[in-house]
Amino acid sequence: MTPTRQSPTRDERQRLILAHPLLFRSGNRQLIKLAAWLAPALIAFCFGFYWLDISWGRVWLGLGRLGEFVSLMLPPTYGDTNAPFDFWRSLSDTTKLWIYLQSLAETLAIAFLGTFIAAVCAIPIGFLAAKNVMANTILHFLTRRFLDTVRTVDTLVWALIWINVVGLGPFAGILAIATSNFGLFGKLYSEAIETADTKPVEGILSTGGSHLHTVRFGLLPQILPIIVSQILYQFESNTRSATIIGIVGAGGIGQHLYEQIKILEWQHVSFLVLLVLAAVMMIDFISVRVRFAIIGIKQGSVAP
């Protein structure tokens, strides 16, 4: 029986080297290239470590304390957590539960209305910021920069500003989410309009359609699916923003979360975090369904 040959003969090897020089090149050059990318990244990392005054001692100490908190978080509850802790007795104390659920509803309302207002108000500016609609370069540039500025200022900062205008409460939160999303939607709309195919528009013009017709039958069918899926994605993301907006007093579940962490009521904290998780996952589930119903494509949401 002839043994199976496991490696090429010397002649074969020579032939292979000649035929594929790149594959047989020593790995050094690639290694150097990798190092050239990696070294600055690592140096910056170490610099950050030093500059931010992070020490391993603090990290370990903190992790230990974090582990302690996690053990104190169990089991999550909304009721009385006093000394002889009885889980079932604490569950029967539902006064806080209703307050939490109400503020969760408030959170969802903030996210929903904020997204809706932004989505509607951004339509005109989306057209203004699109290069193919707005021929004036300077105006186009200014609109874009304006949208960037609005978008870069964080929702929490907008919330603080709106609190000065309409007072504390969820309404300020709605307006804050609407404002920061206005910048984002304006940008997303304009990009969708810019990348739209011009052929359907030309086709409609050739059959004698008016300008409005080209927008309704040429442009809208192309950009609507993109816009709807972005709005739905943003709705989910806004639910997350709306949960923290209460930290500055703009309504929603965030203010309870903030209070409970401050008074170290860890079991309530974990309950609230679970509520947030459940709410966001529910919104995600619903938005996938709605997207499917409107566009007919079932895809994972893609970050803009």
């Binding site: 005054d53 903190g62 930290i247 979360l257 962490i261 947030v276």
Partner: peptide, 28 residues
């Protein structure tokens, strides 16, 4: 991964500030 990205970073930061103390470390 889902839990990591669903809980807002500010909530993590609030909890970590209590655990690690004030400063950039909990933010990181």
């Amino acid at each position: 991964l889902e839990i990591c990205r669903t809980v807002p970073e500010l909530v993590f930061a609030l909890i970590f500030v209590v655990a690690f103390g004030l400063g950039p470390l909990p933010g990181v």
